[in-house]
């Protein structure tokens, strides 16, 4: 199959993720959209590795997964703690830090 198709999928996933981050209120959903964007990037890396015929992109994908795992831990902890204090998971309620 033409490897460019994988790139199209990757771009699609990234776009869905970005739109999700920009438009959704629920922080869990936003969080999943971020994961979606990360995985779109991973897919792109792996595809590029395949096109180039070396393993660099694959290695980077592993790094991304490790970073994403850490990010999930920290992010979920923040979300849980916000939920505890505000009884809401909506990001629009967390708007104290402004002008």
């Amino acid at each position: 199959m033409n490897p460019a198709n994988y790139l199209f999928v990757s771009a699609l996933l990234f776009t869905i993720g970005a739109l999700g981050v920009l438009t959704r209120r629920n922080s869990i959903v936003i969080f999943m959209c971020v994961e979606l964007m990360l995985n779109a990037a991973n897919l792109a890396f792996v595809t590029f590795a395949r096109i180039q015929g070396n393993l660099d992109g694959q290695v980077i994908a592993f790094f991304t997964m490790v970073v994403a795992a850490c990010e999930v831990v920290v992010g979920l902890a923040i979300i849980v703690s916000i939920y505890r204090s505000r009884r809401s998971a909506s990001v629009d309620d967390v708007n104290l830090l402004k002008f």
Binding site: V91, D92, V94, N95, L96, K98, F99
Partner: peptide, 17 residues
Amino acid sequence: ARRLQTGYVRTYSLFIL
């Protein structure tokens, strides 16, 4: 200029994007 700081996460993400 400080009016840009709306406090909404999505505004900031839009800027980043």
